[in-house]
Design a protein around this nucleic acid. Structure first.
Length: 506
RNA sequence: GAGAAGCUAGCUCAGUCGGUAGAGCAACUCCCUUUUAAGGAGUGGGUCCCGGGUUCGAUUCCCGGGCUUCUCACCA
C-alpha cells in the first residue's frame, strides 16, 4: 500500500494506545446486545412519552458511534444499530478507568458496547447513562459524517459511485439505503409467504446450462474443467420449471438470479432477479389474476395502501387492472390499425412500414411485419402505460413458448403487466404441444439463420419432456428488481441491487 | 456501442481569464460534567483522476486514456 492518509495514521496511533493499555480493540464477543429501538420503546414508551424512573435497571446494547459531542470530562455519543439510534451519556464518574480510556480514544465509526441506565437529559433526549463502555471494533477508515436537524441532512455521501462500489459505507451512513434493502427483503419474504400459502413449492433449477434457452438473450459463457464442456449461465429457468410440471408438480415457483450478457442501464443489470411461477390446469387468465393478487397483497402488507407514490405519480395497484389488447393498444395510442391484416396469412411488411413511417417511426431497417408492429408498441404505447395495465394477446412470432389463441393464426394467449411505463413481467398459457413447440423452435432457428438478432435456442430435451405430456399450464414471470424499484420509489435498478455490476477500478 | 456532463482535503463543494489552491463538516491540541448541525481558542491535512503535448511555468489550455452519471441503442 502507498502512504497512509493523516487520518488513517491518527487512528492507528489511537489503536496502538488502546492495545498498549491492554484493551482488545476487537474483542471476541458481546452477546448481551438488545435492539436499540426495542429498548427505547420499553424505557421511553411507545410514543416516546415516558420518563424512566430514577433507578431504572441498566440495559445493554451496542452499535456504531455516529456522533460524538465532547463536553470535557463527559461526552454525549449517538450509537446506531440496524434499526435505530440512541444517545449515550458517558463520563469518568460512572466509567472505570479502562472504559474512560476507551471513551477518550473514541472515533466516529467505532462500534461500541454499552451498559447503562435509561434516563432523560435536561432537554428531554432519551439516553443511556453509561456504566460501562466496551470497544467492539475500532474504526480505521473514517466514515463520512452525516449531521441532521429537523429531518434535513448535512453532508453525508452523495458520490453515487462510492455508494455502489462501497455499499457498506452507503448502508452505514445512509438510512434510506438501509430502508430500501430492508424493503427488498420484506418483498421477497412476502411473495414467498403468499405463494406458500397457496401451496406453491419453491424449487431450484440449474444456473449452469448446456443450452441457454427459455428467452431470447445473449448468455454468459463459461467452462467446466472436469467435463471439459462449454456451459452457459442461465438466461431463464422457464424450460426447467415446465419439466417439473411434466414431472407432476402442479404449482412451482423459483425466485432467483438470471444472467444476460447485455447492456447496463437504469433498468438493466447483467444479473437480475426473476420470479417464475407455473401452475398446472391454469391459463394466462389465472396468471393475470395471480399477478394482480401479488401486487395488491404486497402493497397492502408493506405500504398499507394500494395507492403507491412513485416519482410524480400515484400508482393505484387496486385490482382489477386495466386490460387492453396489444394491437388494440397500438391502435388507440398511435392510430395505426394493424388488426385489419390479421386475416391474412402473411401480413405485408411494406404496408406496415409505410404506416409506421407516416407517424414518424424509423422502421426502414426492419425485416418483418411483426418487428414493425413491435416498434410501434414500444415507441407509442409502452411509455404511456403508467398505471397498471395488462397488455394481452401478443404476436405469435415473438412468443415461441406461448399457446395460440384458438382459431387465431397470429396471436397467442400472453400478457405483460406494465407499470410506470416499464414492463414488469411476462406470462402466458404455456405451449404444451410438443410438435408445435418443435416447429416454433425451428422457426426461431430459421429467423436466426436469416440474420435476426436474438432468437430462442432449441432445447430438444424440453421437446422430449413435452412429448411425455404436460397439462395445460399457466406461467408467469415478474422482474423482482423492477418491482422493488416501484415499491421503493427508485428510478435506477442499481439503487435496489446491493452490489450492482460496475467496471472494476484499476 | 454513441452522445452529454462530472472527477479538487476523509465527506460536501467553491476556485484558479495559465503563476502548484479554499470553505463547512470531519481530524489534531487546549477549555468545558445534561449536549444535540453543542460551543470557544488554535493547528495540520491536497500526485486538483491518469498519461502526453504546448508553455519559462499546467490543477487550469490541447490531445489521449480511466471511472461514474444521464440520455440513446440491445434487452427484462
Amino acid at each position: 500500500m502507498g502512504e497512509l492518509t493523516e487520518l488513517h495514521e491518527q487512528r492507528l496511533t489511537k489503536l496502538a494506545a488502546i492495545v498498549d493499555r491492554g484493551i482488545d480493540p476487537y474483542p471476541v464477543r458481546f452477546t448481551d446486545k438488545q435492539d436499540i429501538t426495542a429498548l427505547r420503546r420499553e424505557a421511553f414508551g411507545e410514543s416516546d412519552d415516558l420518563t424512566p424512573p430514577e433507578n431504572a435497571a441498566a440495559v445493554a446494547t451496542a452499535g456504531r458511534v455516529v456522533a460524538i459531542r465532547d463536553m470535557g470530562k463527559a461526552q454525549f455519543l449517538q450509537i446506531q444499530d440496524q434499526n435505530g439510534r440512541i444517545q449515550i451519556y458517558a463520563s469518568n464518574k460512572t466509567l472505570n478507568d479502562n472504559d474512560y480510556f476507551v471513551l477518550t480514544h473514541l472515533d466516529l465509526g467505532d462500534i461500541v458496547g454499552v451498559k447503562g441506565r435509561p434516563f432523560r437529559t435536561k432537554t428531554g433526549e432519551p439516553s443511556l447513562h453509561a456504566e460501562s463502555l466496551t470497544m467492539l471494533s475500532k474504526n480505521l477508515q473514517p466514515l463520512p459524517v452525516v449531521k441532521e436537524k429537523d429531518g434535513e441532512t448535512y453532508d453525508g455521501i452523495s458520490d453515487i459511485e462510492m455508494r455502489y462500489r462501497q455499499r457498506y459505507i452507503d448502508l452505514a451512513v445512509n438510512p434510506d439505503a438501509r430502508a430500501t434493502f430492508l424493503l427488498r427483503s420484506a418483498i421477497l419474504r412476502t411473495i414467498r409467504e403468499f405463494l406458500h400459502a397457496q401451496n406453491f413449492i419453491e424449487v431450484e433449477t440449474p444456473m449452469l446450462q448446456a443450452v441457454a434457452s427459455g428467452a431470447a438473450a445473449r448468455p454468459f459463457k463459461t467452462h467446466h474443467n472436469a467435463l471439459d464442456i462449454e456451459l452457459y449461465m442461465r438466461i431463464a429457468p422457464e424450460l426447467y420449471l415446465k419439466r417439473l410440471i411434466v414431472g407432476g408438480y402442479e404449482k412451482v415457483f423459483e425466485m432467483n438470479r438470471n444472467f444476460r450478457n447485455e447492456g447496463i442501464s437504469t433498468k438493466h443489470n447483467p444479473e437480475f432477479t426473476m420470479i417464475e411461477i407455473y401452475q398446472a390446469y391454469a391459463d394466462y387468465e389465472t396468471m393475470m389474476r395471480l399477478t394482480e393478487d401479488i401486487f395488491e397483497h404486497l402493497a397492502l402488507k408493506l405500504i398499507g395502501s394500494t395507492e403507491l407514490p412513485y416519482g410524480k405519480h400515484v400508482i393505484s395497484l387496486k385490482k382489477p387492472w386495466k386490460r387492453i389488447g396489444y394491437l388494440e393498444s397500438i391502435r388507440e395510442m398511435s392510430g395505426l390499425d394493424f388488426e385489419k391484416f390479421l386475416t391474412e396469412e402473411n401480413p405485408p411488411v411494406a404496408e406496415a412500414k409505410k404506416m409506421a413511417a407516416a407517424i414518424g417511426l424509423k422502421a426502414e431497417n426492419l425485416n418483418t411485419f411483426w418487428e414493425v408492429v413491435d416498434l410501434a408498441f414500444s415507441e407509442k404505447v409502452e411509455p404511456n402505460l403508467v398505471q397498471p395495465t395488462m397488455v394481452t394477446h401478443f404476436p405469435k412470432a415473438i412468443s415461441p413458448l406461448a399457446k395460440s389463441i384458438p382459431g387465431n393464426p397470429h396471436l397467442v394467449e400472453r400478457f405483460e403487466p406494465y407499470i410506470t411505463g416499464r414492463e414488469m413481467g411476462n406470462a402466458f398459457s404455456e405451449l404444451n404441444d410438443p410438435l408445435e413447440q418443435e416447429r416454433r423452435f425451428n422457426e426461431q432457428a430459421a429467423q436466426k439463420a436469416e440474420g435476426a438478432g436474438e432468437t430462442m435456442e432449441t432445447d430438444t430435451d424440453f421437446v422430449t419432456a413435452l412429448k411425455v405430456g404436460m397439462p395445460p399450464t399457466g406461467g408467469l414471470g415478474i422482474g423482482i428488481d423492477r418491482l422493488v424499484m416501484l415499491f421503493a420509489n427508485k428510478s435506477s435498478i442499481k439503487d435496489v441491487i446491493l452490489f450492482p455490476l460496475l467496471r472494476p477500478q484499476k
